[in-house]
Write a protein that binds this DNA or RNA. Structure first.
Lengths: 346, 346
DNA sequence: TAAAATAACTTAATCGTTAAAGTGATTTTA
DNA sequence: TAAAATCACTTTAACGATTAAGTTATTTTA
C-alpha cells in the first residue's frame, strides 16, 4: 500500500537517490545504461513523485487558484472551463473557489491559497478599493484579474488583466435602444464597485447623452450580478406607475431574472418591454429566450487569463511591465428589443 | 519576501520549533504563557504554515478532486457549487477537472490526483466497466461516485455513492407521456455506459410496457449527454417521415438542444412535439422554456457526496460497509408536454 | 605523459513541519 | 521523604525529493 519512493528504486538498483532523481528529471550526470535502467524500473514499480516533497524543495505547487463569485452562474462556469483547460494543458492544476459575493470569503480564500503555496491566482471578483488586491501585492504572489479590473490608474499600472471592452459594449447596447425609439429606459446595474458595472454604466450614459436622453434616477437600480437579485430589482422597477419601456441590464444572467419579473407582471417582451443583456451566455440564444445582448467570450477570457498568469509565473525575472488584454464586443440582435418587429426609428 | 516559517518564530522567541508547532496546533506540552506568546507572535509576523511540509509529514493534503465531464453544463456547475461549499466548510479545498467525456482524460486526471497526494476524489463521470474505477480501488484512495454509479452488484458493494432514483424518475416521466396519449415516443438517451442512462432507460421501458407501448428501435438514439449532440440526434429523429409525437430526453441540458432542433424544424412545443427532460436545471423553469422534467437536486448531491467523502477520509479505520444515498425524484409538470393544454387522456 | 578536464557517480545538506525520545525541574504519591 | 509521575520544554530524526559539494575513474589536452 505504501507509495513507492525514490529510495525504493535506489535500493533495488543499488544506486544513489540523486542518480534516480537526475535520471527521472532528464538531468545530466547519468550514463545512458543506468538512466534507462532507472526509467524502466520506475515505470515497473509504478513510481509517482511525491508532490509535497517536490514542492517543499522547489517551491512550486503547479496549482493555480481560480476565484469566482459563483460557479453556477453560466458566465463563470464558461470562464472556468476555459481557464481549466488552459491550466491543465500547461501542466498545472486548478483549484476552484466561490466567494458568494463576499469580500471576507475572498480574503480567506486568498490567504489559504498563499499558505498552500499556490503558484498563482486568477481573480474574477475584484472590486475597486479591494483590500485583497493589496494583500496579493504584498504577498508577491503572481495573479491576473479577469473580467473585472482595477480602474484607478495609479494601481492599475502594475496589474495584469484580461477584460472586455465593457464601455464600448454598453455604448452599443444603449445606442441600439435609443435608435429603436426608447426614451424611458431603466438600468439594472451589477455592483458599482465592480469595474465592469462602472464602465458599462459610463458607456450607456455616454450613448444616452448623445441621444439627448437622461435616465431617471429612480430607474437606475444597482442590485448585484445575480439572477435572483435582478429579478427583485426588476419587480420593483416594473411596478412603478411610470415604468420604463426598455431595460438595459448589465449581465445576461441578470437579464434572465428580469425576464421572469416581466412575465410575472404580464408584460410581453419585446412588445411591452424591451430588454437588452450583456454577455451572451449560451442560454441567451435559446429559442424562447432570444435575448439581444453584447458578446463577451467567457471561454476565451478564461483561457487568456490562465495563459497570461502562467507566462507570468514562468518568467518572473522580467521587467515591471504589465499585460492587459481587452476583448472586443459585438452587438447581437435577437428578439428581446423589438428590432425584428419594427427596425430602427432613428 | 521570504515566507515566515516556524523557525523564524522560534528564533524570535528563543524556543524550539517543536514548541511552536505544538502551541500553534493546540497540542499539549506548552505552558499557558509561552503558548500565548507564540500565538501572538505568529499572528504578528504573519505566519502561514507551509502545506508542502505539513503534507509531507502528515500525508494529508486537505485537497479533494472533483471530476466532472464539463463544468459549463449547468447540471455539473450546480453540483460543483454544492460540493465546493461543503468541501470548504469542512476545511478542505477542491480541485476541479473536466474530462470532456474522455476516459483517457479521466485516467490522466486520476493519476495526477493520486500522485499529488489528494485526500479523496468525487467522481461524477463513472462508466460501467470503467478501468479507472479499478485504478481507484487499487490505489486505495478514498472516493465517492456521484450522479453515476456502478451497477454490477459484485463491484458496487464496496463503492460509496450519491445518486438519484433515475429509474423511478424516468418511470414517472414515461408514464406522464403515456397518460397524455402519446404512443409514438422517441428516446434521446445519454451514454448507455453511464448508470443513469441505463436506469433511465429501464424506468421508461417498464412504464411503456405497462401501457402496452413499444419504442420503435429507430426512435431510440444514444448520443451522449451534451446539448450539441442531443441537438444533432433530435434533428435526425425529427426529419423522419414517421416522426414521434413525443420525446423523452435523458437530461435537461440535452432537452435544450432538442428544443432548438424542434424549433428549427418548425415544430411547436408542445403542440407538434411533446418533450420531457430529466434533471430540472435552473434554466428549465425559465419563462419561454418551461420544460416538463423530473427533479434532481444537483446542489444537494454535490454537498452530500462531499460530506460522504470526507467522512470516509476521516474515519478510515471503519468497517468494510459502504454508504449509498439515493435521492428521490419528483415530476415537475410545466408546458413542454401539453398537460396544461389538454390534461391526461388516460 | 603529466596535468587538466570531464563523466558518472555518491554523500551530505536542505526545504518546513511533525513525531519520538530525551532532559531537568517540580509535583504527586505511598 | 524517597520514588514515581507530571510538566514544560529541547534534541534528534524523519517525511521524499533536490541541490551543492565531493570522489573516483576515464578521457582529453598540451
Amino acid at each position: 500500500m505504501n507509495r513507492i519512493t525514490i529510495k525504493d528504486i535506489a535500493r533495488q538498483l543499488e544506486v544513489s537517490t540523486t542518480t534516480i532523481s537526475n535520471a527521472l528529471n532528464d538531468k545530466p550526470g547519468v550514463g545512458m545504461v543506468v538512466r534507462e535502467k532507472i526509467v524502466k524500473m520506475a515505470r515497473k514499480m509504478g513510481y509517482q513523485p511525491n508532490y509535497f516533497a517536490k514542492g517543499l524543495v522547489s517551491r512550486q505547487s503547479f496549482a493555480i487558484g481560480l476565484i469566482v463569485s459563483n460557479i453556477a452562474d453560466p458566465f463563470n462556469s464558461e470562464l472556468a472551463l476555459g481557464a481549466q483547460e488552459k491550466i491543465n494543458d500547461l501542466g498545472y492544476n486548478m483549484m476552484l473557489f466561490n466567494t458568494k459575493h463576499s469580500n471576507e470569503n475572498e480574503k480567506r480564500i486568498i490567504e489559504m491559497l498563499i499558505s498552500r503555496g499556490t503558484d498563482g491566482i486568477v481573480l474574477s471578483t475584484a472590486l475597486q478599493d479591494d483590500p485583497n488586491i493589496d494583500l496579493l501585492n504584498e504577498m508577491q504572489i503572481p495573479y491576473v484579474l479577469v473580467n473585472r479590473l482595477i480602474l484607478n490608474p495609479k494601481k492599475a499600472g502594475r496589474i495584469d488583466s484580461v477584460s472586455v471592452d465593457s464601455y464600448g459594449g454598453s455604448y452599443k447596447a444603449a445606442t441600439h435602444l435609443c435608435r429603436l425609439g426608447h426614451t424611458k429606459i431603466g438600468i439594472i446595474a451589477g455592483d458599482m464597485q465592480a469595474s465592469n458595472a462602472i464602465l458599462l454604466t459610463q458607456g450607456s450614459n455616454d450613448a444616452f447623452a448623445e441621444f439627448g436622453i437622461s435616465i431617471r434616477p429612480d430607474l437606475f437600480v444597482e442590485c448585484g450580478f445575480s439572477r435572483r437579485k435582478a429579478f427583485q430589482a426588476a419587480q420593483g422597477i416594473l411596478a412603478k406607475k411610470n415604468r420604463p419601456t426598455a431595460l438595459l441590464i448589465q449581465g445576461d444572467n441578470m437579464a434572465l431574472g428580469v425576464r421572469e419579473a416581466a412575465y410575472k407582471a404580464s408584460l410581453k417582451i419585446p412588445e411591452d418591454l424591451a430588454i437588452i443583456g450583456c454577455d451572451d451566455i449560451s442560454i441567451s440564444s435559446l429559442a424562447g429566450i432570444e435575448l439581444t445582448t453584447v458578446t463577451q467570450n467567457q471561454y476565451k477570457m478564461g483561457m487568456a487569463s490562465a495563459q497570461m498568469l502562467i507566462n507570468k509565473i514562468k518568467g518572473q525575472n522580467q521587467s515591471g511591465s504589465s499585460s492587459k488584454i481587452v476583448m472586443e464586443t459585438e452587438l447581437i440582435i435577437r428578439n428581446s428589443c423589438g428590432f425584428n418587429l419594427r427596425g430602427y426609428v432613428r
